[in-house]
Amino acid sequence: MTDPRDRVFLARGLTKIYPMGEIEVRALRGVDLDLFAGEFVVLLGPSGSGKSTLLNILGGLDSPSSGAMQYGGRDLGVYDDAELTRYRREHVGFVFQFYNLIPSLTARENVALVTEIARNPLAPEEALTLVGLADRLDHFPAQLSGGEQQRVAIARAVAKRPEVLLCDEPTGALDVQTGIRVLAVIDRVNRELGTTTVVITHNAAIAAMADRVIHLSNGLIARIDHNTQRQAPDDIVW
């Protein structure tokens, strides 16, 4: 599992500084991190600890201010906009806290939006079946519950068979029951498709699902826990 040949991401000395008006916000202050193929990693930390910034940099949605960020041995930091776009298109699946579905498209069409431009995708119907929404294919986002919307978002993210699945607070807007269903789907994708999965949360209970738990605090990695046994989502106590 920790064989360097399986290393997907390599981050060294990552920093990120946002100018916010007159002050500068240092979101990341020098993060070193390796992520490995098929791993389920949870990023844990309070608000403002730098979790989302790290996730965005991993996913090519943002670039570090300094430091190296490698994916598959290639430095994302030197990618231009078009290369980052291709990187996201070919390798990364995203799940956002607020789903970010296109409101004017049905569940199936939201997934098709991504399979359309992917090289070897699942069929949208297949992806939606995977997340348990085979019977909601033609519903618009407004006709779906929050949990269902998030599952559409997961189907959309995994339909392209990405190497990496990045989830930013996927259960943040959901109740416990629904949150567990969503986590179960993510867990299943990780196990069945072998997708390297990174999940942001500030809910420590979810950490039990992961192979590794990375604790972020104030822009730095505070510590990393290894779970010897991954807990099934159903067994999580919130």
Binding site: T85, R88, V92, F94, I117, R156
Partner: peptide
């Protein structure tokens, strides 16, 4: 702008 961001996150290029 939000939808544009989402499309870009999923790998749609500026041209498309």
């Amino acid at each position: 702008r939000e939808q544009i961001g989402t499309l870009k996150a999923f790998g749609y290029g500026n041209g498309a």
